[in-house]
Every structure is written in structure tokens, then in C-alpha cells.
Amino acid sequence: GFPHNFQETTYLKPTFCDNCAGFLWGVIKQGYRCKDCGMNCHKQCKDLVVFECKK
């Protein structure tokens, strides 16, 4: 597997964290999205993600 390539992201529609399944709250920059596989997560979850990037 590969490490994720997370970038701070502004979501335009309701989005949930792929790590904890919690809602990504806020208006802008609600969470992080992996540029390579599209995984979404909270800032506090991005260092805890157990799934490797599937590129």
C-alpha cells in the first residue's frame, strides 16, 4: 500500500469521514481528501487512518 496524499478540502455537498463515519462539519475546509484515492476524513482522523491508499 501507499501513504495517503491528503489535502485540505472544501466540500460543496454533505460529506462523511471515511475513517470514523462522522459528518464533516463546516462551510469551508471541512476536512481532508486524498488526491490519489479520494478518501475523505477529518483533520484529527487523517493521522489515524488504518486503510492504505489504493492509488
Rank of each mutant, 00 (worst) to 15 (best):
C34N: 01
Y32M: 10
H42F: 00
W25E: 12
C20W: 01
Q7S: 09
K35M: 06
V50L: 14
E8F: 10
V50Y: 06
G22R: 10
V27L: 11
M39V: 09
V49L: 06
N40M: 10
N40V: 11
L12Q: 05
R33W: 13
G26S: 04
E8T: 06
K35D: 10
K55E: 06
N40T: 12
Q7W: 05
K46H: 14
P14T: 01
V49M: 03
L24V: 06
C37G: 00
P14W: 10
G22Q: 08
V50C: 14
C45D: 12
T10L: 04
N19I: 08
C37R: 01
F6H: 05
K13G: 05
G31W: 01
F51Q: 13
G38C: 10
T9N: 11
Y11W: 08
E52V: 08
G22N: 05
K13L: 12
A21F: 11
P3W: 15
F51H: 04
K54E: 10
K46N: 05
Y32P: 01
G22L: 11
V49Y: 11
F23C: 08
C17R: 01
G31M: 03
C41P: 01
K13E: 02
K35C: 09
Y32N: 15
F2W: 03
C41R: 08
G31A: 10
N19T: 12
V49A: 14
F2T: 08
C34E: 01
H42P: 01
P14G: 03
P14M: 04
K54L: 06
Q44M: 13
C37I: 01
G26I: 00
C20K: 00
L12W: 05
I28P: 03
T15K: 04
L24Y: 02
G1W: 03
K13R: 07
F51D: 12
G1M: 15
C34Y: 00
P3G: 15
F23V: 09
F2A: 06
I28C: 07
V49F: 13
C41I: 13
K43H: 08
C17T: 01
Q30Y: 02
C53R: 06
T10G: 07
F16W: 04
C37W: 02
Q7L: 08
Q30H: 02
C20S: 00
H4M: 05
K46E: 13
C20T: 00
H42K: 01
K55P: 04
Q44R: 14
G38Y: 03
R33K: 15
C37E: 00
K13F: 08
K43M: 12
F6T: 03
Q30L: 01
W25F: 08
D47M: 07
Q44F: 14
Y11K: 12
T10F: 12
Y32H: 09
K35R: 13
A21W: 07
N40L: 04
L12K: 15
C45L: 00
A21M: 08
D47T: 14
C37Y: 02
V27R: 02
W25Y: 07
Y11T: 05
G1L: 12
D18G: 05
H4I: 01
N40Q: 12
N5D: 10
L24K: 05
D36F: 10
K35G: 09
L24R: 04
F2M: 11
G26N: 02
M39L: 09
L48H: 07
G22D: 07
G1Y: 15
E52I: 11
W25I: 12
G38N: 14
F2S: 08
F6A: 06
N5Q: 11
C17W: 00
Y11I: 05
K29F: 07
V27H: 03
T10D: 04
V27E: 08
T15F: 04
N5V: 07
C20Q: 00
C17E: 01
L48W: 11
C17S: 00
G31E: 04
Q44D: 15
G22T: 05
W25K: 07
F16I: 05
H4L: 00
F6Q: 05
M39I: 09
H42V: 00
F6M: 13
F23Y: 11
D36R: 11
G38K: 15
E8R: 11
A21L: 15
G26C: 02
C20M: 00
W25A: 08
T9M: 14
Q7R: 09
T15C: 05
D36A: 08
C17F: 00
M39D: 06
T10N: 05
K29S: 10
T15I: 08
C45W: 01
Q44L: 11
N19F: 14
G1C: 15
C41N: 03
C41H: 02
D47H: 05
Q30T: 02
Y32V: 13
C17H: 01
P3M: 15
G26T: 03
D18A: 13
H42S: 05
V49T: 11
F6C: 09
K46S: 10
T15D: 02
L24M: 15
E8W: 08
G1E: 13
E8A: 14
F51N: 15
E52T: 12
Q30C: 01
P3C: 15
C45S: 03
I28Q: 03
K35Q: 15
L48V: 12
N40R: 09
K35H: 12
K46Q: 05
C17L: 00
G1K: 15
Y32F: 05
G22K: 06
F16N: 08
D18H: 04
P3D: 15
L12A: 10
Y32E: 08
C53A: 03
R33G: 09
A21Q: 05
P14A: 06
V50G: 11
M39H: 09
T15V: 04
R33E: 15
V50A: 11
E52K: 11
F6R: 02
R33F: 13
A21T: 14
F51C: 11
D47R: 08
I28L: 06
R33D: 06
D36G: 15
K54T: 12
M39R: 08
P14N: 00
T9S: 14
C17I: 01
K43R: 10
F51M: 12
C45M: 02
I28D: 04
C34M: 02
D36S: 12
K35L: 13
P14S: 02
F16K: 07
H4K: 06
P14D: 04
N5F: 07
L48P: 08
Q44C: 13
N19L: 13
K29V: 05
F23I: 12
G31N: 01
T10I: 02
D47P: 11
M39G: 10
K54D: 07
M39W: 08
T9V: 05
N19W: 14
T9F: 07
Q30W: 02
C20D: 03
N19P: 06
K46P: 08
T10A: 04
D18I: 09
G31C: 04
K43Q: 11
K29W: 06
G22F: 04
F16Y: 13
L12M: 15
K35S: 12
C41W: 07
K35N: 05
M39K: 10
D36I: 12
P3K: 08
F16S: 06
C37A: 00
E8L: 12
F23P: 04
V27S: 04
E8S: 07
G38Q: 06
D18T: 15
T15H: 07
N19K: 11
F51P: 11
N40P: 08
Q7I: 07
N19G: 15
L24P: 02
Q44N: 06
K13Q: 06
G31R: 01
K13S: 09
G38V: 06
K29I: 06
V49I: 05
Q44W: 13
K54A: 06
K35P: 09
F51W: 10
C41L: 12
N40G: 10
D36T: 12
C53W: 10
C41D: 01
Q30S: 03
L12G: 12
H4Q: 01
H42L: 00
C34P: 03
E8P: 05
P14L: 05
V49S: 10
V50Q: 14
D36L: 11
K43E: 13
K43V: 15
